[in-house]
Design a binder for these strands. Structure first.
Lengths: 409, 409
DNA sequence: CTATTAAGTCAATTGTCTTGACTTATTTTT
DNA sequence: AAAAATAAGTCAAGACAATTGACTTAATAG
């Protein structure tokens, strides 16, 4: 058959894939449980004791796990627990936001070791790339100062910025960061840093952070609503972040719906009513103001009538969003996170309860329907940094499959 | 560590998993391409020629694939194409609807070989189960008459019924089919038929049908909106049906939203405005009427003012639903399918275009944003029958992983 | 003190994919 | 017409990773 006409199926696998998967599973089990003996790992992963022993030996040699002191747990030989070595791997996260860029260095267990921040001039990538690459360099130096061999164990760079990606950008729409959308960011960062680079939208990054070290830790079906300058959702489905066909899944801020009390049929994007951007517009705040958070927090401490009305309207939309996402995804929990001042987060959540009835009202629930996750301007950067760790060490279907060497298609 | 405290990670895998996956991948490649030579299969799956040869030999011995006549394709030895043997496997599908139950028998390639239908008395499972088991028996006999050895190659029974499952059922709500929800259906069917039984909601079943033999064939990211008595969506994500934490993902009819022109803040379920049920209510039709479809079709052929208004209102909601699902999932395409008369489907689609702007407006699209899939009362039953085929033969992450033998979790 | 239980190791085995050389069949070039 | 090139497919040996079952070690229970 002509090679061009051939529809590629899912690819096959071999022992290499098996082995790689089992290593990831082992690391996942340790991440979930903190520490486990070899026998525990065998139970957790359904592998045999012998297999676990071999893999653990490998991982220990690679500096990814280490043994702790043996513990007696009743009858039988004491067990030797193993845990992840935090210094076993490092990753750099980069957040590109509208007016600011941030970097974070994390280790294998998700601890933050270094941070950097810089204002992003309005010029877009032309001037911004230089700032960004310098900030990354600085963060790498800071990391090396703390962990001398970190450079040898750097598994990648994770970038996060507002989406959507690859959509016809309206050059005038400040929401879209159009100039950045049309810029070959991945290639530039890869060339400039020598690292493997991944890209997520900010909501996805927040979800990645929640999954590694936050409220979604160990939860296989969770929706993270990211309430920031825009509004998005990070979708954790079957234990993996779902990206959609073009990496734009979860851009819920762009859902068109009728405003409350609308007399016309005019629909408008959800994030025009529920986002920090909408608040800035209402309160006439400058989104580029470095003290924006402090100002909003101050306003939230003593809300005036305008703010109360905004919260009421935003919460109205958010209640609907939570109910809709629960209905669509049937998740174990919904996590509200974002880059919003904690005072505002508190007010918003207060206004969101009680939640609307949904299929999430089940007797067998173990997690609350709505939880609060990271509400911190650094959440996205942390998630960006967590992405290379996840990409490298988390069990994923695609990590089992053979990669094709062929050029075309 | 105490076994009870151990958080189970994803399980590991071994050669058995590898082999099982590669067989599935091979079948998937043949299903997608119709027919492929061994060399083609090697390219499609990224496996070596030798591995493909061994597996194909196995599958041929098992009666799942067969060779065709060799074809010359230019220079080099002519290739021998292989294809799936339709009679290689069979499955039974069962649809339990509010007033009727249907059965379908399909083969490995999704061809329908037998159908059965019966009215479902209002008594619920107490009386209905007998009807159902008899209908399944009859369909199996019909299948055996057509394909004598089908019983030896029956891979399972797929059931489909309206969801949601496991939710506090309001006993009086006829939407919920409460009596069936609280009935141990899977166990009863398994015991009564001796087959492995799977259960999906009707929207998921419709999506399964679209994926095997319909518009979602070979599409890895598709949303199938099922417009039937209720409203639901079947989610095909990464090439697999997504079920959610409790099998209720996609129940979009239960999304609460503001009706158009609502003066109050009163939200109501989407399917109260967009579903056959809502149409019945408006036109004062009896949903249990066996001639319901014909009546609706007749009304659609010559729509009166009431019907026009309903279509207008339903299309208003459906346009929003399509835009929202595109925004949330970033799929390659949205497929509108359902158990609705074709005349009505035509009117509805007409009223839905043009679609609302969304992130699906991309220059690099290959598929239309909205397609029409099966609009046929049998679509759900076909999807139900396709489920065991998919479960048995499609490549899935979970099919690679070891299954745990242990009792408790 | 002995039996029991559990963790963990050893050495041989098994199953599956890979490798590289080879055969076969066809078209293209000389 | 012969030789070269190309592609499909096979053969046999090899590599690799998990499995198996017996074994060792170290603790507690009775």
């Amino acid at each position: 058959m002509n090679d061009m006409r051939l529809i590629r199926a899912k690819s096959g696998t071999n022992q290499e894939g098996t082995s790689a998967h089992n290593r990831r599973v082992m690391i996942d089990a340790l991440r979930l449980n903190g520490q486990l003996s070899r026998a525990d790992l065998a139970r957790a992963t359904a592998l045999t004791k012998q297999t676990v022993s071999n893999i653990i030996e490998d991982l220990e040699r690679d500096g990814l796990v280490e043994s702790l002191e043996a513990v007696r747990n009743g009858r039988g030989q004491p067990s030797t627990p193993y845990r992840l070595v935090p210094e076993g791997a490092f990753a750099i996260g980069l957040q590109i936001d509208r007016h600011v860029t941030r970097t974070i260095a994390v280790d294998l267990v998700g601890r933050v070791l270094a941070r950097g921040e810089a204002n992003l001039p309005a010029g877009g990538p032309a001037t911004g790339v230089r700032t960004i690459l310098e900030l990354i360099e600085k963060t790498r130096r800071d990391l090396t100062a703390l962990a001398p061999h970190s450079e040898d164990r750097l598994v990648g760079l994770g970038a996060a910025m507002p989406g959507p990606f690859g959509v016809e950008a309206d050059a005038d729409d400040p929401w879209m960061m159009a100039a950045w959308q049309n810029f070959p960011l991945l290639e530039t960062l890869a060339a400039g840093t020598g690292l493997d680079v991944g890209l997520q939208n900010d909501a996805a990054a927040a979800a990645t952070a929640e999954r590694m070290v936050g409220a979604a830790h160990g939860v296989d079906h969770a929706i993270c609503i990211y309430f920031g300058y825009g509004l998005g959702a990070g979708l954790i489905l079957n234990g993996e972040l779902y990206r959609g066909a073009n990496g734009n899944a979860g851009e819920i801020g762009m859902i068109l719906s009728l405003p409350r009390g609308a007399s016309s049929d005019e629909r408008m994007p959800l994030e025009h009513r529920a986002s920090i951007a909408s608040l800035c517009k209402l309160l006439d705040l400058d989104p580029a103001d470095p003290d924006l958070y402090a100002r909003i927090d101050a306003a939230a401490a003593n809300p005036d009538q305008g703010l109360v009305r905004w919260i009421d309207a935003a919460a109205f939309e958010m209640r609907a969003a939570v109910q809709a996402l629960e209905t669509i995804f049937d998740p174990q929990t919904v996590i509200l996170c974002g880059g919003l001042p904690s005072g505002l987060a508190r007010l918003l959540i207060q206004a969101m309860v009680p939640l609307l009835p949904s299929i999430a009202d089940r007797r067998d629930r173990t997690l609350p329907r709505l939880q609060v996750g990271f509400t911190d301007p650094w959440a996205v950067a942390i998630g960006a940094a967590a992405e290379p760790i996840s990409r490298t060490f988390d069990p994923r279907f695609s990590a089992i499959l053979k990669t094709r060497v062929s050029a075309a298609v």
